[in-house]
Design a protein around this nucleic acid. Structure first.
Lengths: 211, 211
DNA sequence: CTGTAATGTAAATGAGCATTCACATTACAG
DNA sequence: CTGTAATGTGAATGCTCATTTACATTACAG
């Protein structure tokens, strides 16, 4: 009865539907029925385009990897100072999470890490690449005198930890605070931590009570 | 047939068994059968001591809250400089995670955050208290001139992010690196970031390839 | 001793979910 | 047009898992 679509299109629709479902109900709540409903098709039709749920998760991993890590790598390879690049990467990542809550839910999901070992390894590799990208930018910034002398790798991990922990609190509190704003405060403080010239401490920033 | 035990003992055994199961199989792999097997009893007997799985998760949340946040609060209230306290809290937290992989798995689990709203709120509250505790220590350190002028709250979040992200990478890679050692490197770098007097940069530290 | 409340178990029960099956319908090559 | 490969669907199928039920056994108060 319904019109047909070629599998290339259907795969994209399914992956995007899955990302949305994860954003709302978590990877735990990601069922074939949910995906199918969101994508506007029957459960069985999912299997015309994917071998199974695992393959959907794999495709989603690739998509997210490109959206987050790929984008960061592009920015890192482009023009600008190290501080500028890092800021763009950091804030863009936060904005991407704010627009797609399913993104951190997927990346940090137990089902992913403890499920299919191949997928877990792929994700771990992407994460390692991300750390590497940031480390290189930071190392360049240290060379140029933009940053104080730091360990690039540890500093990169610190930066990613800020994002992840904030995404987590945002997720737990079900969006009780403004993620972009919070990311801005964290970035300002990070700059004060890392930059060569010490600057005066601005007014206290706590726009969200607690948590 | 088997000897009996009073419910007070049984509840502890069940909670500890649950923590172990989560450490090995994640919250996703936490089934009543797994808990019962680990605790050496039948599935049905679990229900003599807990109303259901949710109540076990609640008890586990209380236990973990006491083990991590409670301990940190005790250290914060004790003797020593701000730097000393923070270091002890940070490294003790890492050591606790290394000994109990189920701990971060539980805290960061989707099932917890998206499951029972009451439990989610409890966990969020404990996390907010933890941030508050660290913020106060950092603020005191700033006052005493131990730390540069920073935003205490954002710095506390940065510190917790370091722990969480490291725990995550450790979890994904299934313990591929030494968690305590990694925590040590991160702490050293954090000190360099925050302390008043700038110190020389030690040799590069990357004991684990990548990820 | 004795009875009874607490503790323990094996075997249902019932719900949710991934996957498969048997059978349409569409679109397009020829 | 026509046949056929790709898409599409509702209805099984079979598995896992939380929870309940019906029936022992233990420990202890009296």
């Amino acid at each position: 009865m319904p019109p047909k679509k070629i599998t290339h299109i259907r795969r994209e629709e399914i992956v995007q539907a899955a990302l949305q479902v994860i954003g709302e109900k978590g990877v735990h709540g990601l069922t074939i029925t949910e995906i199918a409903g969101r994508a506007g098709m029957s459960d069985a039709n999912i299997y015309r385009h994917f071998k199974g749920k695992q393959e959907i998760l794999g495709a989603l991993g690739d998509f997210i990897g490109e959206a987050v890590m790929g984008k960061a790598a592009g920015i890192a390879a482009g023009q600008g100072t190290a501080v500028e690049k890092l800021k763009i990467i950091f804030l863009a990542h936060a904005a991407l999470i704010a627009a797609n809550p399913g993104l951190p839910r997927f990346m940090f999901s137990e089902e992913i890490h403890l499920g299919d070992p191949h997928l877990a390894k792929t994700i771990a590799g992407k994460m390692a690449g991300y750390i590497e990208t940031l480390s290189n930018v930071i190392a360049a910034g240290i060379n140029d005198g933009e940053f104080r002398p730091l360990s690039p790798r540890e500093t990169a991990i610190t930066l990613l930890g800020m994002i992840q922990f904030t995404a987590l609190r945002w997720s737990i509190t079900r969006g009780a605070f403004n993620l972009d704003g919070e990311a801005g405060h964290l970035w300002d403080n990070f700059l004060r931590l890392t930059q060569t010239s010490s600057s005066p401490m601005p007014a206290e920033t706590n726009p969200m009570g607690s948590v």
